[in-house]
Design a protein around this nucleic acid. Structure first.
Lengths: 332, 332
DNA sequence: TTGTATGCGTTATCAG
DNA sequence: CTGATAACGCATACAA
């Protein structure tokens, strides 16, 4: 564990010269540069970045807060964030909160105590609502919704939901079920608004009994679908607020001998990779995960640099993709 | 940004007392303790962990190296690692290498430069083979294989593969195809060994044409299966070396009008969450992802503490689970 | 271009 | 139990 002094001694120069040779080589003569580099090789020197960070009061790390890393959509976004961070010389501290506020605080504390320079939040919630995010912390929200405040990047959830339901209506569906996320989840709110807009535009009356509440897990999609299967007057299509719930719902429908899409159409949201490989492949909304992560990281970097992004919002385009899980309603 | 001196001044004690009050309260009188704590509240003090890390020459961070975070099996393991790390006061630096040695080196460098105290590698490769892992770096390998060296936690890939193939044979299958990972991938080697063992035990001759090489992606499973579809004498079962390839293979079979499992049985490996929800649900091998991550983190911690785990190996039990993608072979 | 000297915030040593 | 002070490794202002 040699340090900068060992190098200086070996090279026969001062520590300042070694330091400069490393961080600002232009300010050092070629001869010194050579001496320094061979000395570095000789003593096996590795700069202590901890000391460097301490000295410069920057950790060159950001924490990424995510409710669940095993969610394939989130992990795609995170991969993109990591990629960008690495390019920019930043490290990514993984903060899988599992929705536990205590764990979130723990990670926020890491930036308060200088172990990270900022935070990227992958959650729909307003960062200021569920717990106190100190105002002086650099934070950008990704995958948020209309009510999210602060710097953020998201898609138009309402508009995308509307595209989906508009399409179902155009196929001839009039009774369209919904498997939503938890009621107070902002994504649920935005996507439900799109659903309602679409219904209203088509002059279809809203039927409350057609909304089943899930929680974005496959398991909840599986269960929520049962409630539709039990109805005498089943919906002819089900709009699921994410792909996992759609996959769960399809599973249940099949078990009840209901064919998708011949008997009931099903749609998802997110376009996780399995959406393309399940049977039938899912009609869904592709979120630009890659782009969202990259953009979020870039925004955070600007924030860390001191730029004021106050309420900068980036709404990225999402793409509605039609696959095999939707069809015209069956005529009985 | 107040520091320990501000607190000391405010509390009317020395910095040493403040430091002790925080790290070793037993050594401080109750009066001092009170003064310190109210001073901390008053000036809004947050200890600078960067300084603390620097001083103690420990970063309290570990890097997790993973080829692809979006792989659901890996993300499960990582979630478990993160959980354990958080419990122990460690941060997890996410290193998604995408298999690029350059990126791996970048992360290894982070521990050489003291930004992390150790590494957990999620890759089958021998950590010493593909690039030079400095010997003095605390590193444990998880999800490795028989040829992996150094501290490691893994399952018995060969034995598990054998369970799968034994089962297929017990159903009456004699022509059993394989969709493998890349030939030189150690997982491929171990699992293929299990396959061969099983065949030999049953007196079935190995037919080289029944092995299709994939690369563990759904896409490759999709393509490899085509080669079986084109065969006049198709296998009656296909042993896929992971679930994604099995899912891809099933997709292809269906497109060719081949029913699973009635016409051809398919098995996977890993038991990612979609294995349970795809159609038909996958017969596969459940890796104890949770336990593997936790154990790997614990081993790394011991390594960091200076313990010598040299060649400690933990082989965890994997469970063979039978679902709907396997059946007795069709009699023609 | 180079060297000297100082300080970053904390912990630990050593006297009191 | 407490306080003064010396490190930790590096970057930089200032002087040469």
């Amino acid at each position: 564990m040699s340090n900068i002094r060992d190098v200086a001694r070996e090279a026969g120069v001062s520590v300042a010269t070694v330091s400069r040779a490393l961080s600002d080589p232009d300010k050092v003569s070629q001869t010194s540069l050579n001496k320094v580099h061979s000395a570095i090789d000789k003593v096996g020197y590795r700069p202590n970045m901890l000391a460097r960070s301490f000295r410069s009061a920057k950790s060159y790390a950001v924490v990424v807060l995510v409710p669940d890393i095993t969610n394939p959509f989130f992990s795609q976004v995170i991969r993109s964030i990591e990629d960008r961070a690495q390019q920019k010389g930043y490290a990514v501290l993984l903060g899988d909160t599992r929705g536990v506020p205590e764990r979130e605080k723990e990670y926020i504390r890491r930036v308060e105590t200088r172990l990270a320079d900022g935070v990227i939040q992958l959650r729909p919630d307003d960062p200021n609502r569920r717990f106190e995010m100190p105002a002086d912390i650099a934070c950008v929200n990704v995958c948020g919704c209309e009510s999210t405040s602060g710097p953020r990047v998201r898609i138009d959830n309402r508009g995308s939901a509307r595209s989906v339901v508009d399409y179902l209506i155009s196929l001839g569906h009039r009774r369209i079920g919904v498997i939503s996320g938890l009621k107070d989840n902002p994504h649920t709110v935005d996507r439900l608004a799109g659903y309602l807009e679409s219904l209203e535009a088509a002059g279809i009356e809203f039927d409350k009994s057609l909304v089943a509440e899930g929680d974005f897990t496959t398991w909840s999609g599986l269960n929520s679908a049962k409630q539709f299967c039990a109805m005498p007057d089943k919906p002819t299509a089900i709009f699921c607020m994410n792909d996992e719930m759609a996959i769960g719902a399809i599973q249940t429908l099949k078990q009840h001998g209901i064919r998708v899409p011949e008997d009931i159409s099903v749609t998802g949201f997110d376009d996780i990779s399995y959406a393309r490989y399940c049977d039938p492949s899912l009609t869904t909304v592709t979120q630009p995960a890659e782009e969202m992560g990259k953009l979020a990281m870039d925004m955070l970097l600007r924030l860390i640099e001191g730029e004021d992004l106050a309420q900068e919002e980036n709404v990225l385009p999402a793409e509605f993709v039609i696959r095999k899980s939707t069809a015209i309603p069956r005529k009985d």
